[in-house]
């Protein structure tokens, strides 16, 4: 189990990571989520021993890793762009950590084919990294990282360089491979979908600090504050009377602040909310209608693709409580709306 306590990293005046404490239990996958520049990559690099700590500690299975160089930590790292060694073929890349562990020749060859099969790249051993597509390169990088038999696998935005459909497919494969190999992993990403698809637990970072952590589903259901909610893909964050009206319409608890996903509000024949249509716009998930809701303000609702509504028309709206998150009142940040 990885345990980080009060970890800080400074670059000159800048405190890139500021007093972060977290744990990654054995066999689980933690996603550290945050916008670019929040210090999440620095945190990962500090855990790998690539960045000196200003303060705090990194312990694995109760052993403080201060003074243990990167190559003795047995934490493999996978980079956004693979960082395969261009002068070695795919097989030699995957065999690289095996050789470092003293495994060579026949045993290594078998292990290499097993790992390549695991990531879905059977028969790629003789290929040059330069001939691989982005997705293939990342699969090789994953196989190579797993070949190190890491106690902890560190993944730095492993899917961010790939296009959307490939990313979704690879995210699923990544989850499967990590589960099959029972690998303890820590994933750093700015993409909440990626985190949701791969990780068991999520930690949200902002400006060097940890603002929330917990099981993935729980973090999504209860964002710590408005900013986290927005970052996690919630479209709209409401407060005060507007929040109360929407919650009443959803028939779901009470709270100061409430966050709505983009498909939380639906156009219906009869509903608890009413308003005048401001704009309409056809999207892939249906008709998106901007409605000026009485006592709430502008909300975007999803309607039947066949529905025909005109600007100025009065319409009724329903709120799906499963697509709404309550933000605890302890939150000290004003909503951005």
């Amino acid at each position: 189990m990885l345990r980080i306590e009060n970890l800080s990293v400074e670059f000159g005046q800048l405190r890139a990571v500021d007093g972060v404490s977290l744990e990654v239990p054995a066999g689980s996958v933690l996603a550290v989520l945050g916008p670019s520049g929040c210090g999440k990559s620095t945190l990962l690099r500090a855990i790998a021993g690539l960045e000196p700590l200003t303060d705090g500690s990194v312990c694995f299975d109760g052993v403080d890793l201060a003074g243990v160089p990167t190559h003795r930590r047995a934490f493999a790292m996978m980079f956004q762009d693979g960082q395969l060694f261009a002068h070695l073929d795919v097989g030699a890349n995957v065999a690289y950590p095996l050789a470092r562990r003293g495994i060579r020749s026949g045993v290594a060859r078998a292990e290499v084919s097993r790992l390549l099969a695991l990531v879905g790249l059977d028969g790629y051993a003789a290929r040059r990294p330069a001939t691989l597509s982005g997705g293939e390169a990342q699969r090789v990088a994953l196989a190579r990282a797993l070949a190190a038999r890491p106690r902890l696998l560190l993944l730095d935005e492993p899917l961010s360089a790939l296009d959307r459909s490939l990313r979704e497919r690879l995210a699923e494969d990544l989850r499967r491979v990590l589960a099959e190999t029972a690998t303890t992993a820590m994933l750093v990403t700015h993409d909440h979908d990626e985190a949701y698809a791969v990780a068991d637990r999520a930690a949200i970072m902002r400006a060097g600090r940890l603002v929330q952590q917990g099981p993935v589903a729980q973090v999504w259901a209860q964002p710590a504050d408005a900013e986290v909610a927005r970052f996690l893909g919630y479209d709209t964050v409401l407060t005060g009377a507007a929040a109360a009206r929407v919650l009443a319409a959803a028939g779901d608890g009470t709270g100061d602040w409430v966050a709505l996903r983009r498909d939380a509000v639906r156009l219906v024949g009869q509903g608890p909310l009413r308003g005048a249509v401001q704009s309409t716009h056809r999207g892939q998930d249906g008709l998106r209608v901007g409605v000026d809701v009485e006592g709430v303000g502008l909300l975007v609702a999803i309607g039947d693709p066949e529905a025909s509504v005109g600007v100025g028309e009065m319409v009724a709206l329903r709120v799906d409580h499963r697509r709404v998150a309550l933000i605890p009142p302890s939150s000290d940040r004003p909503p951005a709306r």
Binding site: R45, H71, Y96, R100
Partner: peptide, 13 residues
């Protein structure tokens, strides 16, 4: 990051 990748895979300096 090439050096870091190698180090993380267990290569000595």
């Amino acid at each position: 990051r090439q050096r870091q990748a190698a180090a993380a895979l267990g290569a000595s300096p």
